[in-house]
Computed example of a mutant assay.
Amino acid sequence: MQFRHSGAIWQAFPELRAGALHVDDIHADAEVEKAIAGFSATASARLAAAQEGEFPEIQAWRRGFSRMGLKPTQYRSASEALLRRFRQEHGLPRLHPLVNLCNAISLAFAIPIAVFDTERIAGDLEVRRAGGHETYLTFGGDIEHPEPNEVIFADGEERAHARRWTNRQSGLSAVRQESRSVLIVAEALHASAGEDIGRLVATLAEALAHHWPGEPKTAMLSLASPRFEF
């Protein structure tokens, strides 16, 4: 299986930097609350100094959404949405331990992180422009079709596993209690994205190895190295 961004995405967003991790043997019994508390404290300290909309990581995604023709305060990147909810509610809902951990790391780094159940992805997964014919399953069970030219995560059966790039994941490949094999993707557009994605991937790989038995495979993605095979 392969994860990649299309050539057109790299051409339109040459500042993009991404990290990808794959790990097997995930289970829902891991105790991650101590780690979550540490990452949440980092986010809280940063939010005490400024609201999330002032963070360079968030501002870069807002500019990116504007370049995609979207209103950045109507469609927020996943990291901005998490930080906003965390600031308002002083916490996040608990889901699967892996998702909870990734959400906490996303808060700490202000960088969106997507987690996919690889057993629910057909063939390769590519971040590309939509044709408009692809299908997208909402968490409510409804089928949608992305707008033509919208940035999506598309698999080999023309199913969109995320809409509006880092805005909204599909319910189809969301991690469940029975999930075992996952692909994790982090993406950033800000000036220090390369350095920050590198730190995020190293932090996440260490946390995964600590809480689950599988050894994660990792990759840093850029225009010069755009593919992750796992």
Rank of each mutant, 00 (worst) to 15 (best):
I113L: 10
I113E: 03
I113S: 01
I113K: 02
A114H: 02
A114G: 05
A114D: 06
A114N: 01
V115Y: 02
V115D: 06
V115T: 12
F116A: 00
F116K: 00
F116M: 02
F116R: 00
F116I: 05
F116P: 01
D117A: 04
D117M: 06
D117Y: 00
T118H: 04
T118R: 12
T118Y: 01
T118C: 12
T118G: 02
E119R: 12
E119Y: 09
E119G: 00
E119F: 02
R120C: 05
R120V: 01
R120F: 02
R120K: 12
R120S: 02
R120I: 04
R120D: 04
R120N: 07
I121W: 05
I121R: 03
A122D: 12
A122L: 05
A122M: 05
A122C: 09
A122N: 10
G123S: 06
G123Y: 01
G123L: 11
G123C: 06
G123R: 01
D124N: 13
D124F: 03
D124S: 14
D124K: 01
D124P: 04
D124I: 06
L125K: 01
L125P: 01
L125S: 05
L125D: 04
L125H: 07
E126H: 09
E126M: 14
E126Y: 05
E126P: 02
E126N: 07
V127S: 04
V127T: 06
V127W: 00
V127A: 02
V127K: 00
V127M: 07
R128S: 13
R128C: 15
R128V: 14
R128F: 08
R129V: 02
R129S: 06
R129G: 05
A130N: 07
A130F: 06
G131P: 00
G131S: 10
G131Y: 09
G132C: 03
G132I: 06
G132L: 07
H133Q: 13
H133N: 12
H133W: 04
H133K: 05
H133T: 10
E134L: 09
E134C: 07
E134P: 04
E134I: 09
E134F: 10
T135Y: 13
T135A: 13
T135S: 15
Y136M: 12
Y136F: 15
Y136K: 14
L137V: 11
L137R: 13
L137T: 11
T138D: 10
T138N: 12
T138L: 10
F139W: 08
F139V: 11
F139P: 05
G140N: 10
G140I: 09
G140A: 14
G140L: 13
G140S: 15
G141I: 08
G141K: 08
G141H: 08
G141V: 07
G141M: 07
G141D: 07
D142N: 14
D142F: 10
I143L: 15
I143W: 14
E144L: 15
E144A: 11
E144D: 13
E144Y: 14
E144G: 09
E144S: 08
E144V: 09
H145G: 07
H145N: 15
H145S: 12
H145V: 08
H145L: 11
P146D: 06
P146W: 11
P146Q: 09
E147K: 13
E147Q: 13
E147I: 14
E147D: 09
E147L: 15
E147A: 13
P148S: 09
P148Y: 08
P148L: 10
N149A: 14
N149V: 10
N149H: 14
N149M: 11
